[in-house]
């Protein structure tokens, strides 16, 4: 009785407990490193987008109503040359995180992909300049962005994220 029922259950439970403990410990070590690296990458990307900014201040998203839930972080520049938004949206196989800089008149200065886990070859179009450059100088209407030809779940999600960034910009600057 003990050997057929109790022992297997005990051993399995013990293994599960030990393993969970070990993983929790490693997770407590790696999580801060992962988070720090994330914000580091974001900061470098921000500086690239608006080189003439003197500094970045975080905007508290909770202060605004109707903020699209894709918007994760928003920053204003200290010398008021524009805003930076970080938005995350579902692509096909995971989140696509984009960073988008908008100047004070509401035109896109630059947009790029911070991270994604889309399929190689198809999904990687959102990392490439020909696609990203079509967004430059575009305003709220997104006129001029090709939303149909060659569109995939990935590019569609990307364009959605840019639209949300535009919405967020006008919510903040109104």
């Amino acid at each position: 009785m003990i050997n057929t029922f109790v022992k297997p259950i005990l051993v399995l439970t013990a293994i599960c407990l030990v393993v969970s403990g070990a993983l929790a410990y490693v997770s407590s070590i790696t999580t801060p490193i992962i988070n720090a690296a994330d914000s580091e990458r974001a900061y470098i990307a921000m500086n690239e987008k608006i080189p003439n900014a003197t500094g970045f201040e975080t905007i508290n998203l909770a202060d605004y109503n109707d903020m699209p839930k894709t918007i994760k972080q928003a920053y204003r520049t200290s010398n008021d040359v524009g805003n930076i938004f970080i938005a995350a949206i579902n692509g096909f196989s995971g989140d696509i995180t984009i960073i988008c800089a908008i100047n004070s008149t509401g035109e896109i200065m630059a947009v790029s992909t911070l991270s994604h886990t889309e399929t190689q070859g198809i999904g990687t179009i959102i990392e490439q300049e020909p696609f990203l450059d079509t967004f430059k100088g575009i305003d709220q209407n997104l006129a001029g962005v090709d939303t149909v030809t060659g569109a995939t779940v990935t590019t569609r999600a990307f364009i959605h994220a840019v639209e949300d960034v535009m919405t967020a910009f006008w919510i903040i600057n109104n």
């Binding site: 198809i122 149909v148 030809t149 060659g150 569109a151 995939t152 569609r156």
Partner: peptide
């Protein structure tokens, strides 16, 4: 099937 969804459902 690439692009089928966009053409059927627009976006």
């Amino acid at each position: 099937f690439e692009g089928v969804i966009e053409n059927l459902f627009g976006q």
